[in-house]
Design a binder for these strands. Structure first.
Lengths: 120, 120
DNA sequence: CGATGATATTCAAAAAATCGCATACAATAG
DNA sequence: CTATTGTATGCGATTTTTTGAATATCATCG
């Protein structure tokens, strides 16, 4: 595998060239989320979401953390969000219309908002 | 073809996911260039360069202008250079090492530098 | 221990991108 | 008009990506 500057740049863009991966990053923009959460928001199968998460992980954009049976993903290279913003502007879109909440069964979603706000 | 915000963003990244196209944009960063020029700098065949230029043109990043037998390409969405810069930074590279001059037979290249500087 | 729920990985088929070759086209020279 | 030069496009073989289905793993509960 070649490793010029252009190759490295191309690999980053390659990881972003898929709408589902872009939507996943938009979800993670608001903070950690478990797979079941992403699955519920996007209406996609678990295995498929896991695959796309793996691509983003290999690209170095996100990382994961296990909490009991759930695995929470988060963005570790926040610059990638700037890339998304810039591309959105170039595409002539002002907002990314994405449902950000979803009813999934992970403990975080199951916990009433009131308690979350109290930091419980 | 779907047309959500994420789809549009993905199409832009798709046009940038190839090292040769990134290198072409880096060449055009310095101003107009004809196909023979790009061909000479990158050491690629003419038909191949034309194909990559077509992808960049369809993505709306560049435009062309005919001058006699030569066709000069230029960037029309300069924001794309910001995307390249940002990706380069994310890749941990500070400079794009790219030969910017080349000996090709187009009138512009054939004109001695001295004359170009005088605006001839 | 076995069962269950959450997630990851593997495999294969379908779709798309890459890239070389041949050819078409436009402009100029003769 | 014909030949030549600079460029574009069409076609096909190869490679890569996508996507679903099946399976594996890992933590927890009983």
């Amino acid at each position: 595998m070649k490793n010029t500057t252009a190759d490295k740049q191309a690999r980053l863009f390659k990881a972003l060239m898929h709408p589902v991966r872009i939507q996943i990053l938009e979800i993670l923009r608001n903070g950690e989320a478990c797979v079941c959460h992403i699955e519920a928001i996007l209406g996609l199968r678990q295995a498929y979401v896991s695959q796309q998460l793996a691509v983003l992980r290999r690209a170095g954009f996100i990382s994961d953390r296990r909490e009991g049976p759930n695995i929470y993903y988060r963005i570790i290279r926040h610059e990638v969000l700037d890339l998304l913003d810039m591309a959105r502007a170039l595409a002539g879109e002002s907002e990314s219309t994405l449902p950000l909440s979803a009813g999934c069964s992970c403990p975080r979603c199951a916990t009433p908002i009131v308690l979350l706000e109290r930091g419980v």
